[in-house]
Design a protein around this nucleic acid. Sequence first.
DNA 1: CGCTTTTGACCTGCGC
DNA 2: GCGCAGGTCAAAAGCG
Length: 719
Amino acid sequence: MEKANGLAVESDLSIGFFGIQQNKLTANSFQRLITRRKNAIDSEQMNGSYCSDKRMFWGTEFPANLNRREDAAAGKEVAAEDEVDRVVDFFSEHRKTARDDRLAAVDEDDHHVMENSHDHQSVPKTDPDTGLHLLTTNARSDQSTVDDEFSSDAEDKRAKNELTLLQTEIQTMNAENQRLKGMLSQVSSSYTALQMHLRALMQKKQEANNTKEHEVVQVEAQDKKHEQLDNILPRQFVDSECPNGGMAVTQESSKTSSNKRTLGCLGLPGDINETAAFNNEKDGKVIRIEKSSGLENPGWNPNKVLDLKNPNAMDQTTESTMKKARVLVRTRSESPMISDGCHWRKYGQKMAKGNPCPRAYYRCTMAVGCPVRKHVQRCANDRSILMTTYEGSHNHPLPPAAMAMASTTAAAANMLLSGSISSADGIMNPNFLARTILPCSSSMATISASAPFPTVTLDLTHQQNVPYASQLPYNFGSLPHNFGSLAHQSQLPQILGQALINQSTFSGPQRSQEQPQGPPQPPQLHQSQHASHADTLSAATAAIASDPNFTAALAAAISSILSGSHPNCATAAATTTNSAAATAIAVMGRSAPGSSNLAPVIGLLVSRGAIGEPMDLHPTINNLWQPETQSSRTNRARKKPLHVLEHSDQYASDHSPWAPVRERRLSGATKRRNEWTPNGSAAACAWNSLVLVLLGAIITATKFWNSEGFWSSVRLRTG
DNA sequence: CGCTTTTGACCTGCGC
DNA sequence: GCGCAGGTCAAAAGCG
């Protein structure tokens, strides 16, 4: 091996490949060269490759930006790597051809080198595909140096042109890849919103039509179907975590029937139960595909499509990706659990390594089969900090009180997921991510991504000055002090303003663009008035903080929306006399595109005690309000006939999958136990809700804000 | 008695 | 293959 211009090259063979011919050689030196070349080729054959380390080869012509190994280490995109692979294969093929030619030429040299050495001419071979000049016996060339240099320059230029074209193509494909990712993200968001809407509608319909007689008929029909299926299979499994439409795919160990696991849920429509089974010969397990009534599956998930040839592939990819995204909320709380508006059932507790405090595991019980889980643990270093980690997305309508946390965590998780997809290892630089997403949030919240699970951390522990119940009045009029801690962050208004700028769906009424210095005014709500948004947001912040009638006005506006007087936040904001309320509606209404825009505001109001519990506002949510507990689930299962249980646990409580979990009469003590908001910290929870709402807006906004600039910069840097 | 919480066993993935 | 750690299940204990 030799060094040339500081780059590692493999003797003169590589040089020959690039058309760099050598000078005239004497007979002796040529003989030595041939001997050396043959040794090199023999060595190459023993190693099984001409140039075992691609970096040596690429190092001469392809600088670091096409270095595969370094790209992988830097988190290069898969698509880009594929492209590089293609390039590598492309040139490897040509190198192989050139090598064969050279081997043949060297053999020939052995016979004729002595007598014909002076007469030999290099025989350039032109690749039919690329036009690259592949010289086979350049060492014997007696062409002039001038000709050599001319040929070398031409080949260099040609190779560089090829490289430029390839690099351009890679960049084009990267750009297209990002566009597709963006489209996928949008489709996913739209699907989620549509799914929620569909569930609400179906539930409404089910409530109207679901009579007892109908249920009995339905169960009998299901029994018949199951009897038929039981003839085919000794036992079937219906995964409770797949209450959605289509198929539930479970994997059953051949040794024990209790050892099953869900492979995924197939989004296949149809109303006839079907079951198929096939053996996975590799691990001796039986794969069962169960197709149940589409009407019985509220959470039908078209994202999950099973490839029968590779049943694990897509489902596991999607599922693992979604499951791995976590949102960690750090709060200061003395209560065992923060109030997030959802109902949870504790299903386990475990000592985690490195922390003397146990970790409690909870499962969302607001709907049967909801995949959302969380675990709660106190910080080892600071016991006053409660760390709540959320995982998964709710598959049911949420009460307004739960929307603040849910929308925030969902937005944060989506942000992380959409970003991590573009990196090879799925992990972003924590500091970079935090700085990019929340540049203003150093004292409010921080976001970080960490291994092994991509985790977004919403750190609310810096609000140490936020008074708890005893100090924080239930009046927004007291908010200036607290809100000011946010508002004094000079960048916050800009961020929120950017949120308005980047969310173009809002079409609120135009108002005066002039912002008087005196009493704060509502923000400019039209998207064309981008320039003033930062200022108007700043004014809005002050308006919310200073207006004592904010809550009442906001509640009135929301009531008008719910009663149908106003179809959306925009019109409600336009008609609300209270400027701060109009601002809040406008901001919140745009904070969660595609979802229930009012929900965060309602949740905020509920938590503030301004309006009643959500059942007073929304009949659909009311039906899902009662939590399920483990024992109720267990007992419900015990009391139901076996055939019902075998079909699905979820149907045991009610023959309709849309029906809520059976309500229970709770004793006073139980009710007290079920009070999620701990005594004395309700106001703190309300404050957290407010922060979470703002965080949701910020995260959602910056997701769009940075969708091009941020992620493309990451790609460019690694690409 | 009905319900919740506890807790040991079990499962699964990962690193060595 | 083994051990470890995180996560889950479900029987049993505890509570009102």
